[in-house]
Design a protein around this nucleic acid. Structure first.
Lengths: 161, 161
DNA sequence: CTGATTTTGTTGCATCGTCAACAAAGTGAG
DNA sequence: CTCACTTTGTTGACGATGCAACAAAATCAG
């Protein structure tokens, strides 16, 4: 084993897995990268529309399909329902989304509908964000990009989504 | 363009980057995975030693080399110096690390030295964590693992470390 | 050595995220 | 219909996190 420990220590693992040498854990690496991305990419874009990161995440989730049930918002966001509730209400106060009953008969179950104003904000940011991300991803080869996303996907579903 | 949009929409980007179709942004994917990993992997292990995630991160950083200057702790952790300061003091109160002046002459610059007790806690957790991570990584092919880590590394340094 | 400048760690504060308790609404067996 | 049970969104409380002001110490030019 370990023919290329220098350059790829993480590849050094066997079926048992106990010989993994990685001090540089996947979790650490991901968390470092995430924190950099938040600071350098997401935060600036969110701030350009005077949104917090949580607000931006919610708006973009809902805006992608125009509207989303409250429950879906909770499921798809990383946050819990408390955070989603408060953030959604903030977005509502600013006229970017509307929270209304799912059906006429019901009064409790809510849908989050993005307003015209919300859509404008979303479109504006998402365009820049797309370009910035694409620019960043260009430092990876096409194969690396594909493998990266596929690997992340696999890990996600292996961990029980 | 878009020969394989179905399976790999993210690979669809050109030099300008404007044609990137990714709704599924890298940031979103990473943040989802991170949050799952924290919940399913890191948190349980940290809790098994009654540590918060921040405490575990600090302890593992210092324990890897036995001791680490305070400044290095700040640099290598994702957190800022305030957080590091408070967390380190907590670890000190619990006898897992010792914070002492870097040299005899100095009184301010600190080194974080992991105690015997701290090392025992670290060793216990790290062993399990390694095994768990290795187990998870087994769902990726060797090539995918290598590419994944290399890609993450590249992105990190491209974003100005 | 001395005074000015920079580093370094601490503290206060505002924000964010999570947990748990709660109330209102929906659901279903009888 | 009705009573018990579940689901859903809100609220309060607390810990974690990040920012910025601050004081003590280190550094350095002269």
């Amino acid at each position: 084993m370990a023919e290329d420990t220098e350059t790829c220590p993480w590849s050094e693992l066997d079926a048992d897995g106990s010989s993994l040498v990685v001090h540089d854990f996947l979790t650490k690496r991901l968390s470092t990268l995430m924190s950099t991305l938040r600071r350098e990419v997401t935060l600036p874009y969110a701030r350009s529309a005077d949104l917090s990161i949580a607000e931006w995440r919610l708006l973009s989730l809902a805006a992608h399909s125009g509207s989303l049930p409250f429950g879906e918002l909770v499921t798809q966001s990383t946050s819990d329902k408390a955070q989603v509730s408060r953030t959604a209400r903030l977005l509502e106060q600013r006229g970017l989304v509307e929270l209304r009953p799912e059906t006429e008969a019901s009064r409790k179950k809510l849908v989050c509908v993005v307003t015209e104003a919300g859509m404008r904000v979303y479109d504006e940011i998402i365009r820049n964000a797309r370009r910035a991300q694409a620019q960043t991803l260009l430092i990876l080869s096409r194969d690396e990009r594909e493998t990266l996303f596929r690997a992340l996907e696999k890990l996600q579903s292996a961990l029980g989504d």
